[in-house]
Nucleic acid binder design. Sequence first.
DNA 1: TCAACAGTCTATAATCGATATAGATTTTTT
DNA 2: AAAAAATCTATATCGATTATAGACTGTTGA
Lengths: 145, 145
Amino acid sequence: MISKKAKYAIHALVKLAREKDKGPILISEISKEGNIPKKFLEAILLDLKRAGILNSKKGKGGGYYLIKDPEEVNMADVLRLFDGALALLPCVTYKYYERCEECTDELTCGIRRVMQQVRDETVRILKDATLANVLATEGTALDNF
Amino acid sequence: MISKKAKYAIHALVKLAREKDKGPILISEISKEGNIPKKFLEAILLDLKRAGILNSKKGKGGGYYLIKDPEEVNMADVLRLFDGALALLPCVTYKYYERCEECTDELTCGIRRVMQQVRDETVRILKDATLANVLATEGTALDNF
DNA sequence: TCAACAGTCTATAATCGATATAGATTTTTT
DNA sequence: AAAAAATCTATATCGATTATAGACTGTTGA
């Protein structure tokens, strides 16, 4: 499960991408619309600003807005920003690598191999899921149920 | 990331499957070999016993042993047993379903669709990763690095 | 039948991170 | 100057994860 922080971040990003033309959007608007605690959301949006995805404007007519192209922002990066590694085990991550105490030989570990596969598929799908892609599929019904 | 509990459980199961012929194996042996806190491991093995995967024998010559066929025990079931849902969002789980507060229409939600895909792939890979399969690939070097 | 062995049960502790809230401050606009 | 809105600092809460201790039960073999 991803954290609420990450979930709120994704929700906010999708909204900001969807309403890209409307100019800056208020924290309070995003907060109300998504039932997201305002103060909590503030911190999240600041993180996204520091990450270079959003920018903000103070004072009247201010708010947050997307500065990256919706095709350049993908779910993998956003999840990594808030929740750290995407992998199920530390031994199959790049940035958060940690050796398993239980493991005798990592290169031939059967468990690691499975987790490696899961990670690869997960990253592939999430990298492909850009804000642009998410918006594009929005509103159309699912093929398989 | 999966919990240590789940990681320890998988490690113990793989060991028990690997040494299936040797008869009951001591908690203390699994604990030492894997640097797993003994008391913590006890609880884990009990859970696996309650789940019908292992059985145990008390007294001298006792210990834990696999009672399910190694082909019948897969990583998806084990992870679900200890960590709950495999999905990244509550709205794409079966047993732990919960509606997202932020979501207006779940059926057409673009975020949900992506998470659905990740879940499907993850479940597919983990279901396929039985103890038998994990053991079979063990010891052979990886193709891609 | 007793002693050693090894798993089982109950209870509790220590941490730690995720989630959330409050209030003062800074910047911008009108 | 006043209002609007984001930013900063700090604190609180809560629950789950991880771990430990000790008493108890059942089994084996001498």
